[in-house]
Simulated scan of single mutants.
Amino acid sequence: MLRHTLPVLAAWVARRGPQHRSPQAWGNHPLLADLILLPAPASDPEHTEQYGRYLLRMDDELGLVHTTMR
C-alpha cells in the first residue's frame, strides 16, 4: 500500500470528502492514519479522479498529474 503513496500539499487535502477517507481501522496506524484515498480502477489507466478543484491521475512516467478546474 505505501508503495503507491506520494506526498501532496496540505491545502489539497484540507476538505476531503467521505469517498476519500481511509478506513476507520487505519486511524490508529501511524503510517496509514493520514492517507487520502483516490480510487482508481486497475482496468482504466487513464482514470481521472476529481478532488476538490483538482483533476488527478497517475502516469507511469510522471507520477501524479494534476490540472486545476476553473
Rank of each mutant, 00 (worst) to 15 (best):
L64W: 06
D59K: 08
R16C: 09
P39V: 03
L62W: 09
D60P: 13
W12L: 14
M58H: 13
R57M: 02
W12M: 15
P45T: 06
P7L: 11
Q24W: 07
A33N: 09
S43E: 14
L62E: 07
L9S: 12
G63H: 00
L9P: 10
V8E: 03
S43F: 08
G52M: 09
H29D: 14
D59A: 06
P41Q: 11
G27Q: 10
R3V: 04
W26P: 03
Y54E: 01
Q24E: 12
W12C: 09
L37W: 05
R70Y: 03
Y54V: 08
Q24V: 12
L32C: 09
E61N: 11
P23A: 01
P18D: 05
A33P: 06
V13E: 00
L35P: 02
V13A: 12
G63R: 01
D60Q: 14
A25G: 08
G63P: 02
A10T: 13
D44R: 10
P30A: 00
S22W: 00
P23Q: 02
M69T: 10
T68Y: 09
Y54R: 14
T68E: 14
L6I: 07
L55I: 03
M1K: 07
P41V: 07
V65Q: 07
G27C: 07
S22Q: 11
L56Q: 05
T5M: 03
H29E: 03
A42I: 12
H4M: 02
L62R: 15
V65W: 00
H29N: 07
Q50M: 05
A40S: 14
N28Y: 13
G17C: 06
Y51I: 15
P23E: 01
P39D: 09
P30F: 01
G17A: 14
D44H: 08
T5Q: 06
A11R: 10
V8G: 10
R16M: 07
S22P: 10
E46N: 14
G52P: 07
V8M: 08
R21G: 00
L31A: 14
G17P: 03
A42M: 08
V13S: 11
A14F: 11
E49Y: 13
E61F: 03
L55P: 05
H20Q: 15
H29M: 02
H66A: 15
D44W: 04
R21I: 01
P7G: 04
P18K: 13
P45E: 01
T67V: 09
E61P: 01
L64A: 03
P45R: 10
T68M: 13
Q19F: 08
L35C: 08
R3L: 12
Q19L: 11
L38C: 14
R70S: 07
M1L: 12
G17F: 01
R53N: 12
T68N: 09
L55M: 10
